[in-house]
Design a binder for these strands. Structure first.
Lengths: 150, 150
DNA sequence: AGCCGATACTTGCATATACAATAATTGTGA
DNA sequence: TCACAATTATTGTATATGCAAGTATCGGCT
């Protein structure tokens, strides 16, 4: 048997960060989606609603920078949530811009979602542990100023 | 202003594990996908190829249990990779089963992918830090025996 | 004014992902 | 053996996600 070849696959299998992170992402995303399902809300959408709530007037490019989301991804997410009446587009002097904000309906939804969120958050914390949550926060913080030098 | 309402949104915004985990998952997935792009391979696919390589004969349900993937997701991923000649389905006595394995072509691809993987892995490690990678591994380990008590 | 590069989104396309429903097969108990 | 539950995978539908290409607008420069 080819020892070198086998070991490169073994190495990936045993140490790949993407495998671990993506696996846990699937599991944890399901925690939140399960909890939020009765509200007709997905965690991906809740994330955007929360960002909009915090920003007041949200500009797509700015939201994407915060969440490290592709603008095209956000564009379609916003589209769906506009259709549901959770977000509304605001007028703007700049004809290119499509700033949006949470509607009253959207805010109500977020408030109603808080208990479900809490439940999922507890499950996630129990699985991951407090320390890892802290460290994830630090990594996100590290990201904010990275790769934006040109 | 309604203090209690605002603070529930603030709490989510500042502490939500899903936000952090999903954000980092997007960023890290892009590290790997960028590195693997010249090979026409995505990290999601590489994960499955590696699992298949390790298992020899891979049964879909078993792969899904390992990776915490929905069977329908795997089904279509395998379909694409069969079409590319990276995987092949094996005959089986049980008419329901569709066990598959890596083809020689698939194995070659994995070997060629190793340097790209290593590069992405280093970027990921630099962003996340060694400790977090360890802890992610522990969380995955914890998962294996969880939530399977019928 | 008029051209042109930069900016801000949107659209086309492919893949990833999951839930619900379906299909095919197996095993089991009467 | 036959009916029925259980197992294993696929198909229908919806959302998420990103890259490339397209559209519209803005701002400067001549």
């Amino acid at each position: 048997m080819d020892k070198a070849t086998t070991s490169s696959i073994d190495t990936i299998s045993q140490t790949c960060i993407a495998v671990r992170l993506r696996l846990l992402n699937r599991v944890v995303t399901n925690f939140y989606d399960d909890a939020l399902r009765p509200l007709g809300l997905k965690v991906s959408q809740m994330n955007i609603l929360v960002a909009a709530a915090k920003m007041g007037t949200a500009r797509p490019a700015e939201v994407c920078e915060r969440l490290h989301l592709d603008v095209s991804t956000l564009s379609r997410n916003v589209e769906r949530m506009k259709a549901r009446g959770w977000l509304e587009v605001l007028p703007d002097d700049d004809g290119r811009a499509q700033p949006f904000r949470l509607t009253a309906h959207g805010r109500k939804l977020l408030e109603k979602a808080a208990p479900a969120w809490k439940q999922a958050q507890q499950r996630a914390k129990a699985l991951l542990g407090d320390r890892i949550v802290e460290l994830l926060g630090e990594a996100v913080g590290r990201l904010k100023t990275e790769g934006r030098s040109p």
